Measured scan of single mutants.
Amino acid sequence: GAPPLPPYSAGGREVTMKKGDILTLLNSTNKDWWKVEVNDRQGFVPAAYVKKLDSGTGKELVLALYDYQEK
């Protein structure tokens, strides 16, 4: 199953993602919540729920390892 959710501390809205989604990583300075862009929406997802990909394009991409439903 998915890892436990860290307390929400990102101070911005969250976004929903599905397992297998490829998201653009915008900011990973917060260790628990990373800012991503998905379907032209920006928001935060739990860092433990995604994995960085080596895209080779200069853009940082992450793979959704679990479904996440915004609150």
Results as ranks from 00 to 15, higher is better:
residue 1 G to V: 08
residue 1 G to C: 12
residue 1 G to H: 13
residue 2 A to T: 11
residue 2 A to F: 09
residue 2 A to Y: 11
residue 3 P to H: 05
residue 3 P to A: 05
residue 3 P to C: 05
residue 3 P to S: 05
residue 4 P to L: 08
residue 4 P to F: 06
residue 4 P to T: 09
residue 4 P to A: 11
residue 4 P to N: 08
residue 5 L to I: 13
residue 6 P to W: 03
residue 6 P to R: 01
residue 6 P to H: 02
residue 7 P to G: 08
residue 7 P to Q: 11
residue 8 Y to Q: 11
residue 8 Y to M: 12
residue 8 Y to C: 12
residue 9 S to W: 10
residue 9 S to K: 13
residue 10 A to V: 10
residue 10 A to Y: 06
residue 10 A to Q: 08
residue 11 G to H: 14
residue 11 G to F: 04
residue 12 G to A: 07
residue 12 G to C: 10
residue 12 G to T: 06
residue 13 R to Y: 14
residue 13 R to C: 13
residue 13 R to D: 13
residue 14 E to A: 14
residue 14 E to M: 15
residue 14 E to K: 11
residue 14 E to H: 15
residue 15 V to M: 15
residue 15 V to N: 04
residue 16 T to I: 06
residue 16 T to P: 12
residue 16 T to E: 07
residue 17 M to L: 06
residue 17 M to P: 00
residue 18 K to S: 08
residue 18 K to Y: 13
residue 19 K to S: 06
residue 19 K to F: 04
residue 19 K to P: 03
residue 19 K to T: 06
residue 19 K to R: 12
residue 21 D to L: 04
residue 21 D to R: 03
residue 21 D to W: 12
residue 22 I to V: 11
residue 22 I to F: 05
residue 24 T to G: 06
residue 24 T to F: 11
residue 24 T to A: 11
residue 25 L to R: 01
residue 25 L to M: 03
residue 25 L to Q: 01
residue 25 L to F: 03
residue 26 L to T: 04
residue 26 L to I: 14
residue 27 N to A: 07
residue 27 N to G: 05
residue 27 N to S: 12
residue 27 N to D: 15
residue 28 S to F: 06
residue 28 S to Y: 07
residue 28 S to R: 09
residue 29 T to F: 09
residue 29 T to P: 03
residue 29 T to L: 09
residue 30 N to T: 04
residue 31 K to V: 13
residue 31 K to S: 12
residue 31 K to I: 09
residue 31 K to A: 13
residue 31 K to C: 07
residue 32 D to E: 11
residue 32 D to W: 15
residue 32 D to V: 08
residue 32 D to K: 06
residue 32 D to G: 08
residue 33 W to G: 01
residue 33 W to M: 02
residue 33 W to D: 00
residue 33 W to Y: 04
residue 33 W to K: 00
residue 34 W to Y: 06
residue 34 W to G: 00
residue 34 W to K: 00
residue 34 W to M: 03
residue 35 K to I: 14
residue 35 K to G: 05
residue 35 K to R: 11
residue 35 K to W: 15
residue 36 V to N: 00
residue 36 V to R: 00
residue 36 V to S: 00
residue 37 E to D: 07
residue 37 E to H: 05
residue 37 E to G: 07
residue 38 V to D: 09
residue 39 N to F: 09
residue 40 D to G: 15
residue 40 D to P: 03
residue 41 R to T: 13
residue 41 R to D: 11
residue 41 R to H: 11
residue 42 Q to T: 11
residue 42 Q to W: 11
residue 42 Q to R: 12
residue 42 Q to Y: 07
residue 43 G to M: 06
residue 43 G to C: 04
residue 44 F to T: 02
residue 44 F to L: 05
residue 44 F to E: 02
residue 44 F to G: 01
residue 44 F to C: 07
residue 45 V to M: 01
residue 45 V to N: 00
residue 46 P to F: 03
residue 46 P to A: 03
residue 47 A to G: 04
residue 48 A to P: 04
residue 48 A to Q: 09
residue 49 Y to R: 04
residue 51 K to C: 11
residue 52 K to R: 13
residue 52 K to I: 11
residue 52 K to A: 07
residue 52 K to W: 07
residue 52 K to M: 11
residue 53 L to H: 05
residue 53 L to V: 10
residue 53 L to F: 12
residue 54 D to Q: 12
residue 54 D to P: 15
residue 54 D to W: 14
residue 55 S to G: 12
residue 56 G to S: 14
residue 56 G to D: 15
residue 57 T to A: 13
residue 57 T to W: 11
residue 58 G to E: 11
residue 58 G to Q: 08
residue 58 G to W: 08
residue 59 K to H: 09
residue 59 K to C: 08
residue 60 E to H: 11
residue 60 E to W: 10
residue 60 E to C: 11
residue 60 E to G: 08
residue 60 E to N: 15
residue 60 E to F: 10
residue 60 E to K: 10
residue 61 L to E: 08
residue 61 L to A: 06
residue 61 L to I: 09
residue 62 V to H: 03
residue 63 L to N: 02
residue 63 L to A: 04
residue 63 L to R: 08
residue 64 A to W: 01
residue 64 A to K: 00
residue 64 A to H: 00
residue 65 L to Y: 03
residue 66 Y to F: 12
residue 67 D to H: 05
residue 67 D to E: 05
residue 68 Y to A: 01
residue 68 Y to M: 03
residue 68 Y to E: 00
residue 68 Y to R: 02
residue 69 Q to M: 09
residue 69 Q to H: 14
residue 69 Q to K: 13
residue 70 E to Y: 08
residue 70 E to H: 12
residue 71 K to A: 13
residue 71 K to G: 15
residue 71 K to V: 13
residue 71 K to C: 12
